[in-house]
Computed example of a mutant assay.
Amino acid sequence: MLQLPLRRLELFCTVVDEGGVTRAAERLHVAQPWVSAQLRSLEKAVDAPLFVRDGRGLALTEAGLRLYAWATEVLAGSVQVQRDIAQLSSGTAGSLVVASSMAIGTYLVPPLLSELRKERAGADITVRISEPAAALRSVEVGEVDFAVATWTEEIEPGALHAEKLWEEPMVLACAPDGPPDADAVDLSDIAELDVVGVPGGVAFDRVLTDQLRRHGMPRVSYVIRLGHAEAMKRAVAANGWVCFAPHYTVADDVAAGRLRAVTIRDARIVEGIGLFHRAAKYFSPLQQAAITMLREKGAA
């Protein structure tokens, strides 16, 4: 029975739904004798009569009732499969798992992927947030489709495809009424302030330290190191401290008056936003759409 053509099952269900061969032939725009011949072939294939004559036309036998119930499920399933495949081809469905570093995964990636989800009903999208090194390891072992994390030049050639998408400017985040008093400072002024830092050795710390060193600023002596942007911002606001922060992490707080963003006059400090994936990775339409969206943001 599993080898029965879907077309023949569809014809059988049409005869049942229309209540007879004549109306089924009219609906399908085929000749009535052809419909009758297909029904006989179907009865031969299942080795059981499917219809009996009653006073008004055809009625299903017990075998016919069982076949009709099964056939309607098969046909419905075939339609669903076609829809699923069409959605996969168009990128409206499918799955996407992205790894991201803390701040990027908290502030940058979710809004972009939320917009992507609105455009693609049925898509299964997950963002895993972790320390950058863990995010890259999850890419290497195939646990995620790609990672969006702090850009670093330390990726070994050939291990992963690494692509810098764009650069985010860093500012000095300060308490609303705390030091410094000015809206712009020089790097040398920061040495006199209490600075909150990220844990030593993480990608953001290495990137920031390298840039400060290139601008002639020795390693910062941090008053405390905290592992997430939200914790850093709270410490800054509560204690009159400051921290280096990508502007995207403090924009809402500045707009709400919870923090101030002070620019650095004599240095351009940035966080690079990087895309990382296995070099031989095949991307589904949904996954490719996500990458395209990220690249378009970088281009903008």
Rank of each mutant, 00 (worst) to 15 (best):
V171F: 04
L50I: 13
S100Y: 01
R278I: 09
A103G: 14
A229S: 12
A231I: 08
A103R: 08
S78E: 15
R258S: 09
M217E: 14
T61E: 00
A300D: 13
H161R: 12
R206S: 11
L60Y: 01
A300E: 14
A76Q: 11
T292K: 10
L112N: 04
E156M: 08
L58V: 06
I264L: 08
V98Y: 03
A135L: 06
P179R: 10
T22M: 07
V185F: 09
L96S: 04
Y248T: 10
D181T: 15
D181Q: 15
L108C: 07
G201M: 06
L4M: 05
V30W: 07
G158Y: 02
V21Q: 11
Q32G: 09
R137M: 15
H277A: 10
F204R: 06
A251K: 08
Q211P: 04
A103C: 11
R234T: 06
S95H: 12
F146C: 01
G64F: 03
F51G: 04
H247R: 14
A149D: 12
A290Q: 01
L136F: 09
W166N: 05
A37R: 11
A203I: 10
L4D: 04
T14P: 05
K281D: 03
R56T: 14
S221Y: 09
V109T: 04
T209G: 05
R137Y: 14
V223T: 07
E10C: 06
I129E: 02
T61L: 02
A256H: 05
T209L: 03
L88I: 00
Q87D: 15
G272D: 07
V74N: 06
W70G: 09
S95L: 04
V254H: 01
A71R: 00
P199H: 10
R278C: 09
R213V: 12
D189K: 07
K297L: 13
L108H: 03
A235T: 11
E115W: 14
A290W: 00
L187N: 03
G55Q: 04
D252L: 05
L160Y: 09
S221N: 14
V139Y: 11
F146I: 05
A149F: 10
H228P: 07
L60Q: 00
Q38C: 12
L172G: 06
S89Y: 08
P169D: 06
E296P: 08
S114W: 14
V15N: 01
Y68W: 08
V97W: 11
L67R: 02
W151G: 06
R213E: 15
L2M: 11
E62R: 05
R66I: 10
L275S: 03
E10I: 05
A48I: 08
L172C: 08
N239V: 04
E43Y: 04
L88S: 05
I264C: 07
R120Q: 15
S114K: 15
M232D: 05
M232A: 12
A280L: 05
E43I: 06
R83G: 11
Q32Y: 09
F146W: 08
A69Y: 03
S138K: 13
L11R: 04
T14C: 10
